[in-house]
């Protein structure tokens, strides 16, 4: 993530002290050296409310993930209900795709992976995408 100029921030309604204990007692046994990124405390759910992921009934933030570019614009978001975890590979794919787009103006078709076929939008390409790219 550092190579891609990406900062990760995690957010929950727990206190910073709970974060500390969780990191010490459990997470450091799953990740060498413990969690490397800042773990934010959102005890009244105010940040979660700003992003539309705070659930007042249960008093917690649901699993929302927002990809924010270097200009502070949200480029992508994913929101999952509690039982299912995220897929970091998909996040990485999206970061690489958006960064590639911002660098080159090219666009990434469905299912694109790093190094895969990209398209250069143009009037000539309209109606001719099929010549350049086919779904697998």
């Amino acid at each position: 993530m550092q190579k891609l100029n990406v900062e990760v921030l995690s957010v929950s309604v727990d206190s910073v002290f709970t974060h500390k204990i969780w990191n010490e007692t459990e997470l450091s046994k799953m990740v060498d050296g413990g969690i490397p990124y800042p773990m934010l405390s959102d005890q009244n759910g105010s940040i979660g409310s700003l992003y539309g992921v705070y659930n007042e009934e249960s008093g917690v933030n649901i699993r929302g993930r927002f990809l924010i570019d270097a200009d502070g614009i949200i480029q992508a978001a994913e929101i999952l209900s509690p039982p299912v975890g995220r897929n970091p590979k998909e996040l990485l794919r999206q970061i690489k795709a958006y960064q590639h787009h911002q660098k080159t103006g090219e666009v990434m078709p469905s299912g694109w992976e790093e190094g895969g076929k990209t398209l250069k939008p143009s009037t000539a390409l309209a109606g001719n995408v099929w010549k350049e790219w086919q779904p697998k």
């Binding site: 974060h19 992921v53 270097a70």
Partner: peptide
């Protein structure tokens, strides 16, 4: 925020110029 053993403060706007992945989770 809790970050590498210390309690700090994070302001999103201070991170301009970097990409940010903001991850919420239940607890």
């Amino acid at each position: 925020a809790f970050h590498k053993g210390k309690i700090t403060s994070i302001t999103l706007e201070d991170l301009k110029g970097k990409w940010v992945v903001l991850c919420f989770y239940p607890g």
